[in-house]
């Protein structure tokens, strides 16, 4: 490739462009990048609390798990979205061409109830995830 081309691919800063394109995608990536860096700190705290015990380290471990919990939520929502996409070939939770979707309905109709249930699945799973976080926070409150 000629030298005079401007090639800025491969720069971390490019991730920030996502915020203007799609905020959901940006949060998904941004939180994931933070959790990558934070995960080694959380792991160290968890291991330290398991090895040496002590209430202070337990509290720190629960708190770090709670932070990880919050940070992985957008990533987890993305993972849960895959199920409806796979089961409906991209019809539920996907962004397929609208005229194609009309054509597909005429050829292979899919039950709207089935699609609605599948589309609701990621939201229901996140509700369960948040409920479990509440249990973790209760553990933290008891430890405090």
């Amino acid at each position: 490739m000629a030298e005079e081309y401007l090639d800025i691919r491969g720069r971390r800063r490019n991730l920030l462009r996502l915020a203007r394109i799609n905020l959901t995608s940006f949060l998904h990536l941004f939180f994931y990048r933070i959790v990558i860096l934070f995960s080694i700190i959380a792991a160290a705290i968890i291991i330290a609390s398991m090895v040496s015990g002590g209430q202070f380290l337990d509290i720190l471990a629960y708190a770090s798990i709670a932070i990880v919990w919050l940070l992985v939520t957008p990533q987890l929502f993305g993972t849960f979205k895959v199920l409806p996409i796979v089961l409906t070939n991209g019809e539920a939770m996907g962004r397929l061409n609208s005229s194609f979707l009309k054509f597909k309905e005429s050829v292979m109709p899919t039950s709207p109830a089935y699609k609605s249930i599948l589309a609701a699945f990621p939201y229901m799973a996140i509700i369960v995830w948040i409920a479990l976080l509440a249990l973790l926070l209760a553990m933290l409150a008891v430890a405090l």
């Binding site: 394109i21 799609n22 995608s25 940006f26 998904h28 990536l29 993305g78 993972t79 996907g94 962004r95």
Partner: peptide
């Protein structure tokens, strides 16, 4: 990483 931005702009 399934950010989904590609589908958003297609």
């Amino acid at each position: 990483e399934f950010a989904g931005a590609c589908s958003e702009v297609c």
